[in-house]
Amino acid sequence: MFTYDDRDSLLREVNPVIKLILIVAITVLVSLSFYPVLPLATILVIVLGLIVLGRFRLREIVYQARLFIFICLGFIVLLLVTRGLVGPGEYRLAFFRFEYVDFIYAFSLGLRIMVLALLSLAFVLTTDPNDLVLSMMIQLRLPYVHGYAALAAYRFIPTFNREVQKIQLAQTIRGVQDDRGVVNKLKRPFKLFLPLLATAIRRGERVSMAMESRALGAYPTRTFYRKTSIRKNDLIFLIGTIIVFAVIVVILIKFNLFRLNIGFN
């Protein structure tokens, strides 16, 4: 999936905890918005933010998000088709019948998915995993033994990917692909999972031995050579983002395009 892209940028410098707070807030706001205009505006804000503050190019963002763009468009079309087939409505296209609210419904759901995907993308692309764990330990008081366990696990993701490929090849050579029948097909992921798990457990043991022999957990506290903190710039970013969204919401209210949608429709 998405991976961290190490490049100097203002977004990278923002404390991960601040980013997480904003992601939660924006997700709630967008999920509750009835009209698709706010999700659309949010998408524009995120993309602009990634370009201006994150120093990404538009095509890089599109490339990274390609799967979700596809899913989002597919979702909108699917919703429109199902609604159009059953529904009464004043708009006609071939044998589809739509109501005004069908379009709102389809687009706001589809664009919400896109917002969620882009928020995660923006977070992962611009957040050094090391900073994330540090800020969890320092700002959010996560016990440091857990923090470092998570970091050690994260380090293994690339190895993990390579291993999956090797295991697949090893099992193909043994003839796993030739097994026919539904039961065998269902068993296949399980066959991949066992060797992967066995290797991972052993590796986990080795890493924890190495970490304990370097005094992990010796004392209730530890010093931090590299620290994350919440600085003035973080607060500026936080307040700035809130202002941007406040302005968007005010404008939308003015044009009667903002409505909170609590409950199901």
């Binding site: 090391n130 970091l151 380090r155 530890r222 010093t223 931090f224």
Partner: peptide
């Protein structure tokens, strides 16, 4: 499988931090 951080400096600092070596 004996590392738990990403950069050389962080890795060497790791043990020292655990024994509360002043920064």
């Amino acid at each position: 499988s004996q590392f738990c951080t990403f950069t050389v400096a962080d890795e060497i600092a790791f043990g020292l931090e655990n024994i509360n070596t002043p920064v």
